[in-house]
């Protein structure tokens, strides 16, 4: 998935707004390919290449441009112009992560947790890369929940819970009743056979201790 940035005039103000965004979510552009949509800029733009340099200096990885005018100098250097698909990319929600990730609460901004009020049925897959997932019901056999952060299940976990999918080894899995088919954190997994039988049917949390998964009862 590539992000699309669409600069607007006046460029100074637009860059300032971008800086403010980067300040709120420092890791937002990290490792993400970006396409710059230049269609909103006037033909007589003095220094398009300079603008792209400004973006690169902010650590933004540009893979291509869109809507560039052929007369602009130095644009080809920024990757192949993408064909104008006619339909602009969907606007993407930008999360406001706190700069200090240990801060307890995130006030305002985009939610980085997802609450599922229904049971997750067999065959269903809940994927939420941005943060924690809370399920109020049960997760059925043959269903899976994947989260960038931790997973909290207030019913019975009978299916799969896969936490820390974006490489977060500090994510945990909590459930009120463990009957899981599989629990995984940051790529380290255990199947039902591996789980301590004394924990089956009990409220349990799972976390990573180095490369090892640990599970313990919560009651």
């Amino acid at each position: 998935m590539a992000l699309v940035l669409a600069p607007e005039l006046p460029l100074g103000e637009w860059l300032a707004a971008l800086d403010a965004q980067i300040d709120r979510s420092p890791s937002f552009f990290e490792g993400r390919p970006v396409v710059v949509d230049l269609a909103g800029l006037p033909r007589e733009l003095p220094d398009a290449a300079g603008l792209l340099q400004e973006l690169e200096r902010r650590g933004i990885h540009i893979i291509g441009t869109e809507g560039a005018h052929p007369s602009w100098q130095g644009i080809e250097a920024w990757g192949r112009p993408l064909p104008n698909a006619g339909k602009p990319g969907r606007p993407i929600e930008v999360p406001d992560e706190p700069r200090d990730t240990s801060a307890a609460a995130d006030h305002g901004g985009e939610p980085n947790s997802l609450v599922i009020e229904e049971p997750v049925r067999s065959g269903q897959s809940i994927v939420f890369e941005r943060g924690d997932v809370t399920v109020l019901g049960s997760v059925a056999s043959g269903a899976e929940v994947m989260a960038g952060g931790s997973i909290h299940i207030y019913g019975t976990l009978r299916g799969r819970a896969i936490a820390g999918i974006a490489g977060n080894g500090r994510a945990r899995v909590f459930c009120r009743k463990l009957q899981a088919e599989l629990v995984a954190i940051d790529g380290v997994y255990q199947t039902a056979d591996d789980m301590p039988s004394a924990l089956i049917g009990r409220p349990v949390q799972a976390w990573l201790d180095g490369e090892q998964m640990k599970m313990t009862a919560l009651d």
């Binding site: 229904e118 049925r121 067999s122 065959g123 269903q124 059925a140 056999s141 043959g142 269903a143």
Partner: peptide, 16 residues
Amino acid sequence: EVSSVRDSDRIIGMLD
């Protein structure tokens, strides 16, 4: 039976 229950769960998801 477990197989029937799991399949029913799948169908309930599709009904929803």
